[in-house]
Design a protein around this nucleic acid. Structure first.
Lengths: 228, 228
DNA sequence: CGACCATTTGATATGGATCAAGCGATGTGG
DNA sequence: CCACATCGCTTGATCCATATCAAATGGTCG
């Protein structure tokens, strides 16, 4: 129960050239919060914020994929979630980030000052409601994550694939922007187990693996069954 | 990865004599929501609401302990949380309960109509904020739960004990109102593993087990270390 | 082409599940 | 009030899923 990722890199940031004005604006319908903030770019593997840093901003993915993660005392890493275009992340109840966030691919992220939102929510019920809804969705997501973590390795991997497919508007063609290590740390498994399980699913024709980062779901019925 | 609790009993309820007026009122300081609702009593093992039922109420534990749980397709049970005096539960984003709730011990629960709160929150920012805060705390709780579930059996059990101790205002004397099966289903372990781990902790003098439902934390330092 | 990194594959070890008793409390009926 | 059934918990023996250790393969970038 050790090893997993022992951290590789993570370019320091936070102090960076001031963010410019919103380029890719208005993506994904949403409330007033969608109209706020500036857009920033992050390179693959760049840290967006670190665990324990003051949570000054709220973030929305414009393009690319972001992961949140936490390094445990003994070096194990747990991934909290993967965020893709349209997803918001970084909202905290306290004033510190309890996870860190890194760009998995090159990514554009809209960055919104927390106290700006707080001020707005004070006066505007819709904004307040939007924040609550966001928190509620996160809660549901994490609850599903708990249900994944009590299952067998195969069920976890299948659950993950179905989750990714669902996000890709239900398509059977799923792109995996994250590494096997990321998947493993999300599912509480080792990289080897993830790899073997995928290979096995391919062998049994439930999925196809044209490349290691691209999955085709071939037999939904079988996958749904394997999902437990 | 099967067995675990196959459900035992669960007296139907919902349709019950109309709840009376609040007897034990005003426990635990809180916002406006604390002043609302009627008090109901539930017997040990009685169901408070079922998975999939319309979420018409919000609940607050006055006395006793409540668990929320979910039965998976194959019969496995996952416990979402244990709630004790002062804790609120049953708040849902959708309009159905995603878990069921049962009284672990005889319990008194304050029951507040959801649409009453919703109406209030519409006008009163403090109420709205209180709902958001509640959701946020649940989120933090579930996130901690995820971190528990990726650990070893011993770490999970120790983490659970420390969590229970913390709730008992940090005392070293911890009462466990729930069965070994409940603990196992909360931690994603079997009853045997929970039992063995507790025995082992007692053997190594980290804890004492005067009775199976009462634990004394003897060596916090050791426990904290074992917590990972 | 060669170095590096991600992924796969293979061999072995092990933590926790499973199967199976045993034991101590609690409660019930005789 | 005691005998017995029941229930929750513990303990023991064995098995198996997944981790661990190790190496080969393949893809990418200089």
């Amino acid at each position: 129960m050790l090893t997993q990722t022992m951290i590789t890199e993570s370019p320091r940031l936070a102090d960076r050239p001031a963010p410019g004005r919103p380029p890719g604006e208005g993506r994904l319908l949403g409330g007033p919060i969608d109209l706020m903030g500036a857009c920033m770019s992050f390179a693959r593997n760049e840290e967006i914020y670190g665990e324990g840093e003051p949570a000054e901003y709220l973030y929305k993915v414009v393009s690319g994929t972001v992961r949140t993660s936490k390094i445990l005392a003994d070096g194990r890493r747990q991934i909290g979630a993967f965020y893709q275009a349209g997803d918001m992340f970084g909202l905290e109840m306290g004033d510190e980030h309890t996870f860190s966030a890194e760009a998995i691919t090159d990514a554009e992220v809209r960055v919104i000052k927390r106290n700006a939102i707080a001020a707005l929510a004070q006066r505007d019920n819709d904004v307040a409601r939007e924040l609550w809804t966001l928190t509620g969705h996160e809660l549901q997501r994490v609850q599903k994550h708990v249900l994944l973590l009590i299952k067998t390795a195969q069920e976890r991997v299948v659950g993950f694939l179905l989750e990714m497919a669902q996000r890709a508007h239900g398509s059977n063609e799923v792109d995996l922007p994250m590494s096997r290590q990321d998947i493993a740390d999300y599912l509480g498994l080792t990289i080897e187990t993830v790899s073997r399980t995928l290979t096995h699913l391919a062998t049994t024709a439930a999925i196809e693996l044209p490349t290691s980062r691209h999955v085709v779901l071939r037999n939904r019925a079988a996958l749904t069954r394997l999902n437990g």
